[in-house]
Simulated assay, not measured.
Amino acid sequence: AAQLIAMKVASELRNNKNIVLHPKSHIAFDEENAYQALTGLKGITIGTDFEPFDCQSVISITEKAAALVVEMPLRRVGFKLTQWEQLQQMSDWAKQSNTHFHMDGARLWESTHFYDKTLAEISSLFDSVYVSLYKGLGGMNGSVLVGTSEFIEQCKVWRKRLGGNLWSAFPMLITALEGLDNNLSEIPSWVERAHEIADDLAKIKGITVNKPQTNGFLIFVEGDKQTLNDKAKQLTQEIGINLFFAFNNTANSNIQVAELQVGAGSVDITNKEISNYFEELLS
């Protein structure tokens, strides 16, 4: 609910319901436009199915907007990040146009390596930042919304209205603190390992990979979706390695796509075992 709250408050402060975001963003795609259905906001979607939008696309919008939302990284287009210069330009545009600049930073922890910037440096471009406590950090659940004290004060009433003021949140905070202590410092090594794994997999015939920008990336495999998923399930049962959720269709019926994410759960799996898994999958 935290991101719906941020957008709703930005809208109320400007008496404007328009929210600019990518059609494949988590807020629009995975939450099935809950921000519109639950809070009465109106989405203005820009960008393609394959890349984050750039500042020129933002500037070309003809309608006045209350908020501009950037997901970092944009998972559904392959965990891709907006270039730093583009973020700076968007930040300047937002200030000049009195548009609230919000970051969906559910995977912000995993993005610093790409920019070679600190969390503070990246966040300074935005008016509000949402971070997840359970993805890279590995906590049970939960999130944090960050902004100015005045903005966060405005958000509190909407936290209650949307059921986010949970009395049972304490265990989530404990596991999040453990994640900050134990996992945060390891994330850069996960990103580097994602590059190594992607390079290894790219050498296997029938596999194409996107160059990782974070610890997650897409792998494209030749074959029938059901056949690949059945064999992947069989391999997982036989050797005890579970590397991804499932293959999904692409525009090419003979090419299937899956997400690979490197994290704490893959520490005990060697790069060689991962390569062997996919070689066996395609044999």
Rank of each mutant, 00 (worst) to 15 (best):
R161W: 03
A176F: 08
Q226Y: 09
L177Q: 05
E222F: 03
V144C: 14
T214K: 10
M140Y: 08
F244A: 11
V257F: 08
G164Q: 01
L243H: 00
V267T: 09
S189G: 01
L166D: 12
R161Q: 13
I269Y: 04
I207P: 08
E280I: 14
E238Q: 15
L145K: 04
H195M: 03
R161C: 08
E279M: 15
R161Y: 07
K160H: 14
I255P: 07
S189C: 04
E150K: 07
W190T: 05
S266M: 11
G179M: 09
L173S: 14
T148V: 05
V157A: 07
N242F: 05
A251P: 04
V157H: 07
G136S: 11
P212C: 08
N165L: 11
Q234H: 04
L180M: 15
Q154A: 10
R193H: 03
W167Y: 06
R159D: 13
G138V: 02
T208A: 11
E238R: 09
L218K: 09
F217E: 06
R159L: 12
N215T: 03
V221C: 14
Y277D: 00
N249E: 14
I187R: 02
D181T: 06
G206S: 12
L260Q: 07
G136N: 13
I204D: 00
V257K: 13
V267A: 13
V267M: 12
A194I: 01
L243F: 01
G138P: 00
L177Y: 04
N215E: 04
G240D: 12
F278H: 09
D199I: 07
L184T: 06
A198K: 01
F170A: 14
E192L: 05
M140S: 07
N229G: 05
A246Q: 15
E196A: 15
L260W: 05
V262F: 00
M172H: 15
I174E: 02
L243Y: 02
E192F: 00
A176W: 03
Q234C: 02
N249A: 11
L137G: 03
I187F: 03
Q261G: 03
T208R: 14
A176P: 05
E279N: 15
N252W: 04
L173H: 12
A198Y: 01
T270P: 04
E222S: 11
N248V: 06
T236Q: 13
G139S: 01
G223W: 06
S253N: 10
M140K: 12
P188N: 11
G263Q: 02
V209P: 03
E178H: 14
I152H: 13
A169E: 04
G263C: 02
G206W: 05
D224C: 01
D200V: 09
I274K: 02
R159I: 09
K231Y: 14
S275E: 15
G142Y: 01
S185H: 13
K160P: 03
V144E: 13
F217Y: 15
Q154P: 04
Q226E: 15
V157G: 00
W167I: 06
T236G: 12
I207C: 08
Q213N: 13
S143I: 06
I207N: 11
I204V: 12
T208H: 12
Q261L: 10
T175M: 08
A176H: 05
F244H: 09
F247N: 04
V257C: 14
F244W: 07
K225M: 15
G163T: 09
A258G: 00
P188S: 08
L162V: 02
A264S: 13
